[in-house]
């Protein structure tokens, strides 16, 4: 019983990490349909932003408070630049987008290596996040995982709010559903695409700060998350945020489950997981939360 609870909590916190990592992609890939292989590098950029801030601001609490919006700003700018320079010339050409962004991903990793070296850089969490919430001998959960869970919830709410309740969100949805008609209604699709891509990238940056708090910050940080992020979005159902939540939950629990039955062999665990997902997609090609009704074009 305790063990199950412990495993469940573990899975839940893994799910919130995947959710955080994937939510930016849920916008750029899920909403806009851009296959951005450099998404992981935006996460990495966010994490390094956090590291740099900590070099300047010694107070760990304050530095995290500064790092979160700054990471957003940095990766938002990087995303906007990338959209303007590369992506916008490649809309509706997925293969070329994939290759171009893969190239950018490799280049960004190399740049990070040149600037920060190959050794892992620490991103230290403030002391009040150090402990763990101990329920009993077996079950405990570190505060940092709780913080990440809370952060994931905040993001979910914030993003749902932006997409469904704000003017920007309305224009984003209009442009993604029918860019030509959106333009005829007076919406500038170029501007919206740029902002949307920036938003997705900026969120990846914030996720990077959170992930950097428990993972080692290296130039390869991003590539550790890119596959899981795409899986999360695809399994959850492209084009909606709830789907990403469902996808992250499924993948988090699945991974912990497989690891539990097969503790020593992580490679095998990865393989089982990918097999499961391939099978899953055969049965539910539109993901867990598929859009329904005449509107979805059935």
């Amino acid at each position: 019983m305790n063990q199950a609870l412990d495993l469940g909590l573990d899975a839940l916190s893994l799910a919130s990490i995947y959710f955080l990592a994937a939510i930016g992609l849920a916008i750029t890939f899920g909403v806009m349909g851009v296959i951005n292989m450099a998404h992981g590098e935006f996460i990495m950029m966010g994490a390094y932003t956090g590291y740099v801030v900590q070099q300047v601001v010694p107070d760990y609490t304050l530095s995290i408070i500064i790092a979160l919006p700054l990471a957003f700003a940095v990766t938002f700018a990087a995303g906007v630049a990338m959209e303007r320079l590369v992506i916008r010339h490649l809309y509706h050409r997925p293969l070329e987008t994939l290759l171009a962004t893969f190239g950018i991903s490799v280049a960004l990793q190399q740049i990070a290596k040149n600037i920060f070296g190959t050794q892992a850089r620490p991103l230290t969490s403030p002391a009040w996040l150090d402990g763990a919430w101990v329920l009993n001998d077996v079950v405990s959960i570190s505060y940092i995982r709780i913080a990440i869970f809370v952060l994931a919830l905040i993001f979910l709410t914030l993003l749902l709010f932006v997409l469904n309740r704000t003017r920007l969100g309305l224009e984003v949805r209009a442009v993604t559903q029918n860019p030509r008609m959106a333009a005829s209604m007076g919406i500038n699709p170029d501007r919206i695409n740029m902002l949307t891509f920036g938003l997705g990238s900026g969120i990846a940056g914030i996720a990077g700060v959170a992930i950097g708090l428990f993972a080692k910050v290296t130039s390869e940080l991003g590539s550790d998350y890119i596959v899981q992020s795409f899986m999360t979005v695809v399994v959850g159902g492209v084009g909606n945020i709830w789907g990403t939540l469902a996808g992250a939950t499924l993948i988090g629990f699945l991974q912990k489950g497989i690891e539990f039955f097969n503790p020593s062999n992580t490679l095998a665990a990865q393989t089982y997981m990918i097999i499961f997902i391939i099978i899953f997609i055969q049965f539910r090609p539109r993901g867990i939360i598929a859009l329904k009704g005449r509107a979805a074009g059935d």
Binding site: R173, A174, Q177, M181, A183, S184, G186, P189
Partner: peptide, 23 residues
């Protein structure tokens, strides 16, 4: 661009209507 013309007061009801389906 079309959005600039729309802002000049040109409104368009296209053939096929082009409703935003999920909104």
């Amino acid at each position: 661009p079309a959005h600039a013309l729309a802002r000049k007061g040109v409104a368009y009801v296209p053939q096929g209507r082009d409703i935003f389906p999920l909104m």
